[in-house]
Design a protein around this nucleic acid. Sequence first.
DNA 1: GAGTGTGAATTTCTTCACAGCT
DNA 2: AGCTGTGAAGAAATTCACACTC
Lengths: 220, 220
Amino acid sequence: MRGEIPDVVVGRLPRYLRALHALQAAGAEVVSSQDLGKRLQVTPAQIRKDLSYFGRFGKQGRGYNITYLLEDLTQILGLDRRWPVILVGVGRLGRAVLGYPGFTPEGFDVVGAFDADEALVGQQVSGVMVRHVSDMASFIQQHSVRIAIVAVPARAAQGMADRLVGYGIQAILNYAPVNLQVPPPVRVRTLDPVLALEALTFYLQTLERQREPAPSGGRG
Amino acid sequence: MRGEIPDVVVGRLPRYLRALHALQAAGAEVVSSQDLGKRLQVTPAQIRKDLSYFGRFGKQGRGYNITYLLEDLTQILGLDRRWPVILVGVGRLGRAVLGYPGFTPEGFDVVGAFDADEALVGQQVSGVMVRHVSDMASFIQQHSVRIAIVAVPARAAQGMADRLVGYGIQAILNYAPVNLQVPPPVRVRTLDPVLALEALTFYLQTLERQREPAPSGGRG
DNA sequence: GAGTGTGAATTTCTTCACAGCT
DNA sequence: AGCTGTGAAGAAATTCACACTC
């Protein structure tokens, strides 16, 4: 129980955390893996197994104390403190990121924004000062920033990732539609709406095929 | 070779498509699974296996003809036509979506936007007319829309998803930080920057632990 | 009775390795 | 010689099922 945690498990933990917050806000005190699973469309066994990587948080016959499990999960995910984050690229997308109110309540502070366009430098956008990219290195060091959000054009993204890694950034949230290559132990998560849509259209097309006359009817 | 395609495979196909486009733009005519894998950080065997679900596209000793493979993948993903899409929720996030130039070149047309706020209704945002949500049903039907982008506040997202499904929407790209529940065969993909950041902090914290004195040193 | 924690069983996904084509 | 396509092997993830606890 102190081996490597599978990536799939790590990917689910934040969802558990969020569901638990919602339950807590709704006044619940205890939740079973069954209940939690229903909310998240995850099997109860999976939830129990995932949590068992980190310890024993439940009580037989009762379920999980929401407050305690929240505390534990918060610590496991490293969210028992605030994380300074920088944004790189203050275009349309970057400005939307700066305006997004969802980061602060979850412990992420966008402490600085950077762009190569001198016209933007010096402005405040949603309360965040825009600086020139040439000032990134010192800023990252001074503020001990380990997380960067990349919202630059696709063609500039890999180069920017390389720079950021060089400056000590260890985690990148990437909005650019490119597959960023970074050396370990740096981590990247990419949010790409077009890729998501393209997977969806595959399924839509599959539906159409099913509507066509099949060789042998009936349900499988 | 006509069984169900695993979701993981479907999730990778759009990435192959994008890499192929990049290669084509760079003037390449042929690519091996090795080359493609290097770009995408996927093993060559995986690429070959994934493609083999759909047919035999390569030539032994040569690799894949980029133009042909692009054609095939485009058709497999249902991207050999344009897809009308509606946006629901014209707040900060929704406006960023409307302004995003990445959808159109990939075959997705945001043909309408909807909001409950009368003050927004009637305006054009990035060239798209904002309508009242009460007009969604007829609009979806008239324009044969099957895909919706949800960018409403978290508390309104599930209700909106229910409505959309009721109106015939079959695929949802969800920007709201909630786990949407939809009946089959409807599909949802959620883009959630906070969940992504929270998975990243887990790894950052893991790095710190590694820096601390370990019981037994050396490399595994 | 209800529900966890977890080895074992099962399923799914990935990689290997090689026959066969160019 | 180079590289695909694919059964078989292997690894990883999920689910089962039940002893155990409250």
